[in-house]
Design a protein around this nucleic acid. Structure first.
Length: 447
RNA sequence: GUGGCUGUAGCUCAGCUGGUUAGAGCGCCGGAUUGUGAUUCCGGAGGUCGGGGGUUCGAGACCCCUCAGCCACCCCA
């Protein structure tokens, strides 16, 4: 093939490749999410990447409709690629409601697609790790959602983050009292931008998109600009929603949620990580109760890495059965981008801990036996594939991020021993072959 | 989708108002060191200047188109 005919290897805008040093921490996030979700009793499901177009359109917001990847398949069906995992859950729950039984708790870790312009932490193909409880309206599920997110972020190695929570009922109450009840969608959308663009621009926005009066704008901004400790906020909000049933109910729910979170003892240091934020509204139309977003303290600009909320009737478009639920979604690839930016991805390019040096060509059987012994005890072990010179193999071990090199040349083998070299400190110790597993394990534990 | 900035070696970047054979640091390969990597010394390889077209005696630089990244709008994970 001539040079001109050759196809340039490249990836589509907004789509990315994951080399080992990225795929390794990415898989770690996925495994952590899976582990945390399962520990709370959520069961895995999976659904197709492609759905009938009618399943997907008109569900998230008009924006998601615009971003939908859609096409006609080979059988002339109008189809679309899922843009989140919540809509497929709604379809799934409606379709199998009879067999599933309620409440139904599921997690779903999979890729979704949105045709929007990419930025850092914002891709056209990205993975979400969702967990939801369908069929329960109790506050316990609200509490659990916050607790799961907190546990998950901690398990991913984050200490500095804030789960910001709010309640749509409170928002509705405030809007109702201000006489803006019918215009909640544009108002909430404007509110959502408060932290980013400031009160003046939000006011302008409210005036234009929601045709709000000066008094109305004032009422909304006064609410959204509230800051302080959760207890203070609860009291302030109480004042603002007083006399409005929806608002008071929402506030009470928010209070119960915070009390429950405290009882869950996820945050022994206090309430710092879970905070009421009156400006959190969420653009998605289907939320009706608790709404939440998670921001990383050291990288707020990348946006929410995990968010969600309560929806009272997600499956209403597919079934007459009422299927309320609550859940949240971890943005796996956004969190990964944040970790990259913060230098938290690590440098390892191998999942194995031990590299066995292929030292003497005629001792391959010994090396294979040693490899098998270590692996049988759960120690990930790679045997170098060729009897190249020692320096080469050690260099390889170092570059890939192995922690221990096992060296067994003719001298060591003659004494039924091997050498274990700790790559980071360059310390080497000798150990009898019979003890190799315990010694390696001790070495790895000490690192 | 709209607008702005950017795109030079594997990586980070330099390259003055267009002027000979496009540079640096790091990395990579080889050797000093045929049983010990990451340090030191010596040598070496590596560039369609994102891609295509145009202006010009001459383009990495200027113009147009295109692809990609980043940022903003919008929206969100």
């Amino acid at each position: 093939m001539s040079k001109q005919d050759r196809i340039t290897p490249r990836t589509l805008k907004g789509f990315r490749d994951y080399p080992p040093e990225l795929a390794l921490p990415r898989e770690r996030i996925i495994e952590t999410a899976r582990h945390v979700y399962r520990s709370f009793g959520y069961a895995p499901i999976d659904t197709p990447a492609l759905e009938y177009l009618e399943i997907l359109t008109g569900k998230g917001s008009e924006e998601t409709d615009k971003q939908l990847y859609r096409f006609t398949d080979h059988g002339s069906r109008e189809v679309g690629m899922r843009f989140d995992l919540t809509v497929p859950l709604a379809r799934f729950a409606a379709q199998y409601a009879q067999q599933l039984g309620l409440p139904f708790k599921r997690y779903h870790i999979a890729s979704v697609w949105r045709g929007e312009n990419p930025q850092k932490g914002r891709y056209r193909e990205f993975m979400q790790a969702d967990f939801d409880t369908v069929g329960s309206t109790g506050v316990a599920s609200d509490i659990e959602t916050v607790v799961v997110l907190h546990t998950l972020l901690r398990a991913c190695g984050f200490e500095r983050f804030a789960i910001r929570i709010n309640h749509r009922g409170v928002l509705d109450g405030v809007l109702d009292k201000a006489g803006l009840a019918g215009r909640s969608a544009p108002v909430l959308r404007a509110l959502d931008k408060l932290a980013k663009i400031g009160p003046e621009k939000v006011a302008e926005d409210l005036k234009q998109t929601a045709e709000a009066s000066a008094t109305q704008i004032d009422a909304v901004l006064q609410f959204a600009s509230l800051t302080g400790e959760n207890a203070t906020l609860l009291a302030e909000i109480q004042r603002l929603v007083a006399g409005n049933a929806t608002g008071e109910a929402g506030l009470e729910r928010l209070r119960e949620t915070l009390t429950g979170v405290a009882a869950s003892q996820i945050d022994p240091g206090g309430e710092a990580a879970v905070r009421i934020d009156p400006a959190i509204a969420r653009g998605l139309d289907y939320y009706t109760g608790l709404v939440l977003e998670t921001l990383l303290t050291d990288l707020p600009g990348i946006g929410s890495v995990a968010s969600g909320g309560r929806y009272d009737n997600l499956a209403g478009l597919y079934t007459s059965q009422s299927l309320p639920g609550i859940g949240a979604s971890l943005g796996v690839d956004r969190l990964l981008a944040a970790m990259e930016e913060l230098g938290q991805t690590g440098a390892a390019r191998t999942p194995a801990d031990v590299l066995i040096v292929y030292f003497a060509e005629d001792r391959l059987a010994d090396y294979l036996r040693l490899s098998a012994t270590l692996r049988a005890q759960g120690i990930a072990t790679e045997l170098y594939p060729e009897p190249k010179k020692l320096a080469k193999q050690l260099q390889y071990a170092d570059k890939r991020g192995f922690r221990v090199a096992l060296i067994a040349g003719p001298d060591e083998l003659a004494r039924d021993e091997c050498q274990l070299k700790h790559l980071a400190t360059s310390e080497a110790i000798s150990t009898p072959l019979a003890d190799v597993v315990t010694t390696v394990r001790r070495l790895l534990d000490s690192i």
